[in-house]
Amino acid sequence: MSASAGAPLLELIRVSRVHGEGATEVHALTDVSLQVGVGELVAVMGPSGSGKSTLLNLAGGLDRPTTGQVRIDGRDVAGLSHRGLAELRRRKVGFVFQDLNLIPSLTAAENAALPLELDGVGVRQARASALESLGSVGVAELADRFPEEMSGGQQQRVAIARALVGERRLVLADEPTGALDSHTGESVLRVLRARCDEGASGLLVTHEARHAAWADRVVFLRDGVVVDTTGAPPAAEELLDHPSGV
């Protein structure tokens, strides 16, 4: 089943996640519902320990909810085997982390082509798609460089290119600018925003309001509970001029 036009690409329905039991029981997320539509960038904000990364892990199928449902492109993640989850990550979902991003022994193009190669696409075709994706994030000229030969911002752009290579349309970004200076971080988010405007969907975990400002919606978490959800945010450039204003 595929999400129809306007249908959410990612859907969390009353999701709860409890770690441990008895005296050590911790409610990481409680009854959270969230939708990310096609072309939409949703930011998740909250203090440390609020459940942001748990939310992202559940959204990417890295973890399973204690109760509730996680649906990606209409498919319930709970019903997928390990193999099915791996396939989902190859074809639908891309991750961008603060670190743990690129394979050091592969070039930028090879890193970007990785999901396609793993999916059995021919090397030449995978490389063509990767070059296209790299071009879309503005680093096509770095295609044959290894990660160590690129700056942090360039590496994150390549990671975004990999997250959206081929038919992949959902980017799950966990503090993607955490290791970057502010200027480079903004440029990376600009790229992410642009890709969403072209039809991708994104879920961005951040603790910086100015980064959340690039999102269509911001979900605020505290102690595992959604405490607020903003509507349409102010324009990003406006936020840059007034960084304190969320």
Partner: peptide, 16 residues
């Protein structure tokens, strides 16, 4: 191990 984590994130299987 870190690289393997990244591979897993893009959908690598046990076979890979």
């Amino acid at each position: 191990r870190a690289d393997l984590g990244t591979l897993a994130a893009v959908g690598a299987t046990k076979r890979l």
